[in-house]
């Protein structure tokens, strides 16, 4: 009995250290340069995801829009929020690109084609990105101190079961979806 308790306490302690303390040591939180309200832009400007995050004609994904897209509406402040004032003063007027940190940027040896997944596969943005398009604020960016990659690629949860869309973008997560839909990609379909 005493041994069992001792063993259980040891396992619990090791798990707590590995799951709670280690991520804090491994990842460093960095704030985004500006706050951004996806929901408000969706409701007020009435745009779809593809209105700002567009696909180029050759099939490349433009990703986070450049400053000129912001400047089309925000050449002058539209409202009275501090964030918008920062945007206009610090970025739009001096024409400086906003140094956004990309949550889901994959390492250099991985390629992902938005064109193939949305056009050929018929996937909706929410199926991989979850509720990001309806979020009212953006979270800090967690950078892996060793690899320099974003934590969102692995996802915040150590337990890999029951992951929600947008929580994980690891190779196994890609593979399980591909296997579920019986879609072949080979190795070099995703690795470069």
């Amino acid at each position: 009995m005493r041994f069992t308790l001792f063993f259980a306490a040891g396992v619990a302690g090791a798990l707590a250290a590995g799951w709670l303390l280690f991520p804090r040591a491994l990842y460093q939180a960095e704030t985004q340069p500006l706050q951004f309200n996806h929901k408000m832009h969706k409701d007020k400007a009435g745009t779809e995801c593809s209105g700002c995050h567009e696909l180029l004609p050759d099939g490349q994904f433009a990703g986070i829009p450049k400053l000129e897209s912001c400047a089309m509406c925000h050449a002058e402040p539209q409202g009275s929020t501090q964030t918008e004032k920062q945007l206009v003063e610090n970025y739009v007027k001096p024409q400086r690109e906003i140094p956004w940190k990309v949550y889901l940027r994959q390492p250099a040896n991985v390629r992902f084609s938005h064109a193939v997944h949305t056009r050929q596969g018929g996937l909706k943005c929410e199926q991989c990105h979850g509720g990001h398009g309806d979020s009212e604020r953006i979270e800090p960016f967690y950078r892996n101190r060793i690899s320099g990659e974003s934590r969102n690629v692995w996802g915040p949860r150590m337990v890999r079961a029951g992951l929600r869309p947008g929580e994980a973008m690891k190779m196994g997560d890609c593979e399980s979806c591909h296997a579920g839909h019986n879609v072949l990609a080979g190795c070099l379909g995703c690795h470069q």
């Binding site: 696909l55 004609p57 050759d58 099939g59 490349q60 390629r111 084609s113 064109a115 193939v116 056009r119 050929q120 070099l188 379909g189 470069q192």
Partner: peptide, 13 residues
Amino acid sequence: QSRLNAAQDEAAM
């Protein structure tokens, strides 16, 4: 392969 992938993207578009 990178050119094949680019051609695949273009085909998707």
